[in-house]
Amino acid sequence: MADNESGTGDISQSDLLSENQNLRAQKDEIWKQIGLKIDAQTEKLTEHGQKFNEISEKLQSMEKLISKISKVDEDVEPKENSNQDVKTPEKLPNTIDSNVSKNSVPVSEKRFVLKHVFKNVENFVEEGCNDSVSENHFNVDSFIRLKRADNHLAFYVFIHGPKKATKWAVQTKINVKIDGPKQKSKVAHFDLCYETDAGYGFPEFLKWDEMKNEYLIDGSLTVEAHVQKQIF
């Protein structure tokens, strides 16, 4: 009887030990699963944090870009009706030198007209400069100059480049005209690329006597310059 009781006690202790090991294994598995879930959540939070940082950096870059664009717009904004003093070049060319490329195709054209009535033309001083009011069109200043030179009337069109620009070029097509009485008019044309603040035109546009006899109206002369500013 004693042997039977001792055998029963040994089996119960073995089962208890086995069950304890099973519980410990289950506990370890549960902790393992919890650890995996924590790692997964941590990885997601890290990924979201990286995306947030990327979005924040992109927003800052966009703000800087918008700020630069606003500054550029302020710098290039045209100033209409400018009263800037006009500088006179030391020497005017006697010929028209066209730099227009035959294969160049303009993307767009901007047109404007300079018109002025010069008074007391008969009293023009030899080689004296007689200028119309400077006008600002499409961010460039322009004006007409007439001169009395060698018994002729000279006709020039001046174009000054954009303010603060160190290097610029304006491709133009220009028609100049002087109107006389009874619908009489004198017309000429030239194509030119302006690259400096200078005047170009015709040093012998009209003979002086012809101008006085056929184009003056009450001592005044009406002149026009039709300018096409080409953008390539």
Rank of each mutant, 00 (worst) to 15 (best):
K184T: 14
P78I: 10
G7F: 08
D15R: 14
M211V: 04
S134G: 11
K37S: 14
A154H: 04
T95Y: 01
H226Y: 07
N175K: 04
V107D: 04
S67V: 04
N94R: 09
V170F: 05
W208E: 02
N123R: 08
K64Y: 05
F190M: 03
S134H: 01
L59H: 08
S101L: 15
K207T: 13
K44R: 14
A25I: 11
M62R: 07
F190G: 07
V76Q: 09
A165M: 14
E122L: 12
K212W: 02
I66S: 05
K71A: 14
K182Y: 06
D85T: 15
G180A: 06
F158W: 03
A2G: 09
K27S: 12
E204A: 14
I11E: 12
E74I: 09
S108K: 14
K58A: 07
P93R: 08
F202T: 01
R24Q: 13
D3W: 06
K110S: 15
S12P: 00
W208R: 02
N213L: 03
T222G: 00
K173D: 10
E80Y: 13
P181S: 09
L65K: 11
D197I: 07
K207V: 03
H160L: 02
A2K: 12
D28E: 11
C129A: 07
D218H: 08
